[in-house]
Design a protein around this nucleic acid. Structure first.
Lengths: 220, 220
DNA sequence: ACGTTACTGGAATGAACGATCCAGAGCCTG
DNA sequence: CAGGCTCTGGATCGTTCATTCCAGTAACGT
């Protein structure tokens, strides 16, 4: 059971267009407003903790508008997942992890972000994953696909490092990409609970050390 | 802001005794049954996804029984957290991580467990943490305390390793304990989403490699 | 034995939820 | 400008939820 790794990259601003009826410009804007409001709310309160009336109020739309664009809450959740996946990939695009220096910049940026958030909220995909993975197979598959793309993007950077000669040829970039991603997810969780970025820093440093161990001397 | 690291260790079977009215033996059994049923349900469906009627049915008690022992749902959640913290500490007690061999046994046991579960459900504390950390300060503090105790227990093992001479004296056991814990949490999440234990294995192996890097030659 | 307290059963309450319905307004197309 | 879409507003429905109430039964202390 293989999951297709993305088809096309959707526009984050307007989000995925549904297969159904055509959307006019105003329609697309309204739909995007709903998804954005739902994503925000669900990131902060969780999916189950976000009611449809909550979303209606935040997006300033009526119930009939929401149900005009989405079949039901589950459909809205699917759209939110797609939205958040694109968000994460967009952010990761800004941090191609293709050198030890860029890895450290990425680490610092992540930590700074959590600091700014006062350690509230973890990973936008991670919290959705924890809540939905076991109960909604379609959601799980979509999130698995999102993580796979994210991992791929990290791996791309490591491959660039190796091709440039920074990494020893036998370096297992597949493995290192998972190590980096797992360290981020685990570090974010511990940080969210403890309200201190210490755990995140330690976890990311350890992961980066694993990459460093595969570099050809001359550290960054 | 320091969080007290546990007061006394409660009995997992009967759980924490409430400060309030005395409980008779039958009362303790009923209370424990409710907490157990709630913990099971909340592990599988999440806290918000677990309704009081669900718990009543699973525990085979009436509403008045539940509200006899717990003020409200939030109070029940607090009891569930305490229950799960004790569970995790009990399990970790069975795996004192005081040698490379024991670390590898622990890794194998965790992976085997997730395999048996078909990768459904992550960490019993992690899923609670993700859902509650931002919205319920008391729950967050209790979970932070639980994680701190867990981390302490891991650290104890590493200290034993160091005292036995397996670890180089300057080895930073505080750091290593966090690395192990973060790798576990992150690995479990990725495994839950992908439905494969590969990520978990990779993450734990990388963390154990960090410990190994601090050992005095003669690998295990 | 008796009074108090712990414990239990089951119906009831009010609020909130997800979802639907209907009627109308805006807007392209022909 | 006429027809048929898209889009919107707001009331409404049935359900489920957390919680309470009242009445009764068991068990403990004295």
């Amino acid at each position: 059971m293989s999951i297709p790794v993305s088809g096309r990259l959707a526009n984050v601003a307007t989000d995925i267009d549904p297969g159904g009826p055509r959307l006019t410009e105003r329609g697309r804007a309204t739909r995007a407003r709903i998804v954005q409001a739902a994503a925000d709310q669900m990131f902060r309160q969780g999916v189950a903790g976000t009611s449809i009336p909550d979303v209606l109020a935040a997006a300033e739309v009526s119930a009939s508008q929401l149900y005009h664009y989405f079949a039901d809450k589950q459909d809205l959740v699917r759209a939110v997942i797609a939205h958040q996946v694109e968000l994460v990939l967009d952010v990761q695009r800004q941090f191609p992890l293709d050198s030890l220096a860029s890895l450290r910049m990425w680490r610092d940026a992540v930590i700074a972000l959590q600091d700014r958030r006062e350690c509230q909220g973890g990973c936008v995909l991670g919290s959705l994953a924890t809540e939905l993975a076991d109960g909604d197979e379609a959601a799980r598959a979509a999130l698995a696909d999102g993580y796979a793309q994210w991992e791929q993007r990290i791996r791309d950077g490591l491959v660039a490092m190796r091709e440039r000669g920074d990494l020893r040829p036998p370096a297992d970039v597949d493995r290192l990409a998972v190590v980096l991603l797992a360290a981020l997810q685990g570090g974010l969780l511990l940080t969210q609970v403890s309200r201190e970025t210490t755990s995140l820093r330690i976890a990311l440093d350890a992961a980066i050390a694993q990459v460093e161990a595969e570099t050809v001397a001359q550290s960054g």
